[in-house]
Design a protein around this nucleic acid. Structure first.
Lengths: 232, 232
DNA sequence: CCGTGAATTTGATCCCGCGCAAATCCGGAA
DNA sequence: TTCCGGATTTGCGCGGGATCAAATTCACGG
């Protein structure tokens, strides 16, 4: 990817968007690019946090392994999303593993270099805080869901959240544009793939969704899904 | 509270600790103090986020109301903790309500003033990011617990987390130095007060804990509690 | 010191969703 | 085209915790 392409990617990312063009250009020039094959990890949970990354294109799934061998999906990340920064700012090892769910390209900067960029460009630091704040609010919302709502509502809310973050409007409805397994949804909602499968089957039956087997999910009746997510 | 007392409070807070003394003194001088009676709220969920706060003394419980009238406890905050900043950085309304569980004093700064302080003092901005990162990791850990572990383990983990954040070593064990109801624990762990009550009763019976009724909880055998939290 | 009410404890029952098992269905490799 | 393996679907029975109920027990105001 040449510098222009990188600059274009960065200026579209929520992190650099509308910041000083010189800063964006400089950052694009200094970034290292890395490509990941499907299934490949950007780094491993527990590794020292040495770099900040921004997804250029593709899709990552952020997995957290539990001490007892289970796994939960913290989130999916696409173009423009910031990866690894939380750990770098804390000076702690990465708390999760980002895995490419399709071929993916990321740009990276070393911790020290990004620190310097932020110190020289306070607006960049403000952006980083805004993004971390967004992550906190998302996590709080999910915690609230899982703590108070039944499985069906959580699955609906999770699908809607994914649609809001990455959904693409198509002729039939809103498509979630990447492979999302029943297992993934189970690990995002704190349930089992069995329950997710049963729930989605019912919804597909009902004409609410489309996406049997491994095709991408398409929400045919978003409003109805919102009703399920909010049902009193 | 006079300037010296404020300065002392701030220099002990994780937010200002070991930063430039002039900055700490300036911040202390500019802060507004506000006292809250027991049960009083600092602000309401949904209010515009206009100020950053640091707890000087006392204790706040951060509550999040769900759309369907339930409530969850996001965390407890004590001296040195930062309140409200997440929302201010996002430019969104406060997502939760901090309620004083005992008489409490907070220091505050307007959003613009704090922004200026951070832009002039990058290390302060870095601190803020570190603290937000800590919040993110805590939320991720809780999400993992609630998504994968049984209630008993979650309650144990929650008590241990509170002990780690605010616990005081006493002759008998580790005390959680504020009123923490069964209901509070239930709203932190995603269960009901009934289940919490049963679980704690068993632990008290077993000599693991102390704190029937509304006295403060004391962990008599922390190691045993860790075992429960980590039981395979 | 007593009465009142909220917090806690405890009991009994029910049911959502998990665990286990098995069948089925594709996607892709050869 | 066929075969293989992982993903998905579906059935069934049990159990952890929720729900519904009620009894206790303190803290506290008067």
């Amino acid at each position: 990817m040449d510098i222009e392409a990188r600059t274009a990617v960065l200026s579209r990312s929520p992190f650099f968007r509308e910041l000083d063009p010189d800063l964006v250009a400089l950052s694009a020039r200094e970034a290292q690019e890395r490509k990941l094959a499907k299934q490949e990890s950007l780094f491993q949970q527990g590794d020292d946090a040495t770099h900040h990354y921004v997804v250029a294109w593709g899709r990552l799934r952020l997995d957290q392994a539990t001490p007892d061998g289970k796994n939960i999906v913290l989130r999916f990340m696409g173009p423009g999303d910031l990866v690894g920064s939380v750990a770098v700012f804390r000076g702690m090892p990465y708390p999760a593993t980002p895995v490419a769910v399709e071929e993916t390209s990321v740009l990276s900067w070393s911790a020290v270099r990004m620190m310097a960029l932020m110190q020289e460009n306070p607006p960049l630091a403000m952006r980083a805080m805004g993004m971390m704040g967004g992550r906190i609010e998302e996590l709080q919302a999910r915690l609230q869901e899982i703590a108070t709502q039944q499985v069906e509502r959580r699955i609906a809310a999770t699908i809607l959240r994914l649609a809001g973050q990455s959904g693409r409007r198509t002729a039939e409805g809103v498509e979630i544009p990447f492979a999302l397994s029943r297992q993934d949804l189970a690990e995002m909602t704190g349930t089992t793939l069995h329950t997710v499968s049963r729930t989605l089957s019912a919804w597909i039956e009902e004409g609410l969704l489309e996406g049997r087997r491994s095709s991408h999910l398409v929400i045919l009746r978003p409003h109805r899904l919102v009703e399920i997510a909010e049902q009193a």
